[in-house]
Design a protein around this nucleic acid. Structure first.
Lengths: 127, 127
DNA sequence: TGTAGCTTTTACAACTTTTTTACAAGTTAA
DNA sequence: TTAACTTGTAAAAAAGTTGTAAAAGCTACA
């Protein structure tokens, strides 16, 4: 693990068919049009996208964006996820996936039929 | 830190459809007519324009124009921004963009519809 | 010294973002 | 199907940031 890598909270860029995240310029484009995100929204999206395909646990998201604190009795994370999804729009539904009992996962663009229908809550949520 | 690089606060010239900055002559023209700016106003505009398209953080602007000092509890920067915008006029609104929680960004002229609604706060401002 | 012009400070208004609250809706497992 | 628990949502509250006017402080110079 050795922390050799610099703490770069955000992969410099993400891109798929619909969505583009340019961390350097702080820009997010959805189908070419620029998105207006707040700071926390941006951080959250960038973190999720940087770990594309992986499930990030609620606790981890909390820790990494809200710095270790914050009881998990608050809906803060959910509210931010909701706003992100709303802003990203249609693609947002598909790309930010809820993993019940665990957390969220960002998925690279897949055509609707390519998306699994099942909720797919894997990983012993306890773990 | 070593000050090897020359302190060249200003790209020699900027120009777009509306605005022209001639750093050598210390002149700013808006739609052909000369603008009378004070020294600080000029420095600020020139610095922003020299980094056209990039977000300059408040701290950085402070450091580079007010030399490292100045608590960020003062409205000095904002006041200068306001006066700049006022003097540049209509174009000023569009070209000096506020990036909430971070700083300001100078944008080359874009037709009104090309402008994002901006509020947009990116990049963990802390970083 | 007085004046004019520039810059900074102050005090508050206006605005934006983030968090909290309260409850609805969805999910899981016995 | 119900009980227990998790997530979604809207709306309000709280926190934080920026905008602005006006006053005060400077500086240069006639």
């Amino acid at each position: 693990m050795m922390s050799v890598e610099t703490v770069q909270p955000v992969k410099s860029t993400y891109q798929d068919g619909q969505l583009e995240i340019n961390a350097m310029r702080g820009e997010v484009l959805v189908n070419g049009s620029k998105l207006v995100l707040t700071r926390k929204e941006f951080e959250l999206l960038a973190l999720l996208a940087a770990n594309e395909g992986e499930i990030l646990k609620r606790e981890d998201l909390m820790m990494r964006i809200w710095s270790y604190s914050m009881e998990i009795r608050t809906r803060t994370l959910d509210v931010h996820i909701r706003r992100l999804r709303a802003k990203i729009g249609e693609h947002g539904e598909g790309c930010i996936e809820t993993v019940f009992g665990v957390g969220y996962r960002f998925q690279r663009y897949r055509s609707p039929e390519a998306r699994p229908m099942y909720t797919f809550a894997m990983m012993s949520a306890s773990a």
